[in-house]
Design a protein around this nucleic acid. Structure first.
Lengths: 150, 150
DNA sequence: ATATAATAGTTGCAACTGAAACCGTTTCTT
DNA sequence: AAGAAACGGTTTCAGTTGCAACTATTATAT
């Protein structure tokens, strides 16, 4: 009999953990702000500064372009972001938070940061640092790192 | 302007990492064995021994019961697992790998273990151990640990 | 210059998933 | 013992997602 144990298998554990954290986190904004995960990603990305294209958000977040397209559409409908067609390249749109989008994000941000802090507190400083280092190493190994372009 | 950076945010990074690893891993068995992730979880769980109920697999893998139900159905159709109604409790079914299910898993197992080993090699022994410890700590904190019952 | 290819973003479609209602069986309450 | 509640597992339904085909625009090749 093979002694394989799924619950000891790292990819599985990582996946289960990420799902749980994602789930907990999204409850922070789902009901209260009526945004879902892709929308959160768009808002959070734009919070770092305006002028992003959908393509850049796709690259940065590694989310499928159709998913980002729909999130952008929804946020635009609600007036939380604004899209202006680029004059240099009419295929693309420069995205940016509107006033109300920025206000919403300012309300959201501390909740989300508190959640992360709570998690890290549970880990303790040393383990939290080591976790971050391991993640960074895997990101590099898997070519997930530093796709930010601003 | 807020200095929040999604790509530095741990829940996001964990999620992106888990998605990438899951994706890479599932290419190992998707085309070749025509099984998907829930089906892989059922097979892998049963590889540790027969007699599991769907409920136990749900608890162990933290996968939704309707998802497990469908995976079990599909695997049974293909003759990879067998379900026998429990005599003590006719609501439940004792699940087990069939001969061909066991053969398939024996073929699959080394691929999957090699993949994990490749990942850990990229991390190095020390970081791999620390990652495991951090994950274990988070599992405990989030109540994800040790739901195995056999 | 013109045809071809590549690119940014959108959309139709099929597959997948979770919530909730459901069925049959078992357990609890009285 | 009878009715209610709980439970294991299934199914329906609605929502979400990714793929692939599409439109419009820009870049490349000849």
């Amino acid at each position: 009999m093979a002694d394989f144990k799924l619950t000891r298998f790292l990819p599985f554990r990582l996946n289960r953990l990420a799902a749980e954290i994602s789930e907990e986190l999204s409850t922070l904004y789902a009901d209260r702000f009526h945004i879902d995960i892709p929308q959160w990603r768009v808002l959070a990305t734009l919070s770092a500064g305006n002028g992003w294209t959908a393509k850049a958000i796709v690259a940065s977040t590694r989310t499928h372009k159709s998913t980002i397209s729909r999130a952008v559409e929804a946020l635009e409908q609600r007036g939380l972001i604004e899209a202006v067609q680029s004059s240099e390249d009419k295929r693309e749109y420069r995205l940016g938070l509107t006033g109300s989008g920025r206000r919403l994000f300012r309300e959201l941000e501390p909740l989300v940061l508190d959640y992360q802090k709570g998690l890290m507190d549970k880990l303790g400083e040393t383990k939290a640092r080591r976790l971050e280092q391991a993640i960074a190493a895997l990101e590099t190994a898997l070519d997930l790192a530093g796709e930010e372009t601003g």
